[in-house]
Design a protein around this nucleic acid. Sequence first.
DNA 1: TCGCTAATTGGAACCGGTTCCATTTCGTTG
DNA 2: CAACGAAATGGAACCGGTTCCAATTAGCGA
Lengths: 347, 347
Amino acid sequence: MSKTTIRDVAKRAGVGVGTVSRVLNNSPAVSDATRQKVQSAIEALNFSPNPAARRLSQGKTMAIGVIVPFFTNPSVVRRLQGVVSVLSVSKYDLILFDIEKVNQRDMSLRTIPQRKLADGLLLISLTPSDIDVEQFALANIPVVLVDAYHPALSRVLVNNVQGGYQATKHLIDLGHRKIAYISDYLDDPFNSPVRDRFTGYKQALAEAGIAYREEYHLQGEHGRSPARHLTHTLLDLPDPPTAVFAYSDTQAIGAIEAARESGLSVPGDLSIIGFDNIEAAEYLRITTIRQALFESGVKGAGLLLNLMETPAAEPQEILLPTKLIDRHTTAQYGKKQLSGQIAALQT
Amino acid sequence: MSKTTIRDVAKRAGVGVGTVSRVLNNSPAVSDATRQKVQSAIEALNFSPNPAARRLSQGKTMAIGVIVPFFTNPSVVRRLQGVVSVLSVSKYDLILFDIEKVNQRDMSLRTIPQRKLADGLLLISLTPSDIDVEQFALANIPVVLVDAYHPALSRVLVNNVQGGYQATKHLIDLGHRKIAYISDYLDDPFNSPVRDRFTGYKQALAEAGIAYREEYHLQGEHGRSPARHLTHTLLDLPDPPTAVFAYSDTQAIGAIEAARESGLSVPGDLSIIGFDNIEAAEYLRITTIRQALFESGVKGAGLLLNLMETPAAEPQEILLPTKLIDRHTTAQYGKKQLSGQIAALQT
DNA sequence: TCGCTAATTGGAACCGGTTCCATTTCGTTG
DNA sequence: CAACGAAATGGAACCGGTTCCAATTAGCGA
């Protein structure tokens, strides 16, 4: 039962509590002799300081709160892994908050900062509202956004407009003219990437002189299964698309499944491109737009750590590049694939 | 700047600090009238109690520490998701510790409990040593193991011997006689599943009257790439196996890659079975042994929560079943697959 | 030897809650 | 109407650190 306190140590070492505290905090104002005495008393009593008391007295928690939506989303997990890799070698503990439901969101974002259980906050793929940001300012807590944007907050992001452009351009370059975009709901206020990639999609279309077709843009919940249904709707169109740009790799997988169910070969009959380059995209050889997921977590954590040391007047921004990874789910329009060249998920 | 304290609230409401504290903790010994006054003072001042102070005075942290090795391992992530799903609706915060290096392990396992920053500890896929367990007892902190075993601790586990047996039996039933096992290092003291599955493997072999062949069991670091190399070694044997049992799906993926690189079709020329049933196994249609990963996290968190409420004298154990999921990477020995029946990852 | 400064050290006060004990208030009962 | 117990309340003491100020000691130059 280690209920030993600093006063026990002080008594045993024959010094004052202040001195013990100084030893614990490596204050230079302690003679080597006393330091020695205190050290051995600490060891003899197997003492370790109570962090709650320390927090209370110095007003710091030595913890960082990480708030994550849908912890089951693989790209979110990958970013979190980047964050963890940095924090686990720092002196800060990591407190994880998962927000699964929308109504949970508001509550959490409001209460977490004011509960003061972290010295800094990292939001992953979660766009805060103005009210939230006000709360952060009120609580005087540094916040960094990863894969989300707010003008008043520092952030790490990817150029999603460019990514959407690259994906669409790739399909256009392959000769496709009937290109669909399946995505999360465009009007989700907390998900700006979905709109940015859509912008890039329309840009590439416009640039190539291809008219935007409303029926080629379908929205739904995020996930493999909703994407499968969306793709079926697309394929059932009187004039179905020949290529699909999926908002995420997860959704691309759903699209591939739908194609298979409809007896279409990928990429022979239908080209599909994803976004994110999650690990499964590699296994499945899905053509995709890579964004540096892990790295975004690393940079975000680093930025927050910096900001906590030396607060910056201006919000900082780190922009990460996107890159086309050309694999096996996209092909030249109209050019039938040789059998055996068939890509993943094909039976 | 919300540095409002309970005393400010007391002053504004015209009551004593004790009363405010009572209101905060829903003590019944407060009249409705005063409760009302205090409530409105709290709202007016936008007050919220400082958790550090609360922790200090009542000696509870309202947090649970979750210790995880190799946060990049998909099966560990999946278990963690189960844990999160339970804790995020509980009143406990979740503090995440990632142990990437072996020497980090000892240090963390020793210091985390004594730092007293959590009321309970959950170890995922991490077997503690006797010394560690002693520390837990000393710190008087409840601990639950998920996917790990120690006689003195409550745990949630899977019957790995049975799983290894099922996998091997499946291959034997398909007519295979030359069956390899690729795995993590058997002598890793913190990884008992690797030995248990090995035991199941040998059991099934013995039962079928097949002699165990040392050269068919290869060990290496965990991961896709090491597994790929191991499989190449296997395939280069003068008398190579016709089937491979991989310790994990991740390793099965590596094995599939190796087969493809060697120009072998899966399952036509080589049957491969994995373990875990991670999501990628479904996409890739890998035959595997399912263990309830997510559920193990859910049960583990639930068990810990129970134990914290009402400590049990005896360590509890929850055993989860394993089940064969027959997909497309295993086939009857000697029976060539029709082309087009080729499984995932095949180009 | 004296005086002064720098280096150490002791310990009270404080951080912001909770808890327990003493006190006040009020309704009941004889 | 007095006596008494229950309910409600105030506030000191405490949890276990940190910090700052005052006090002691030591070193050094004149």
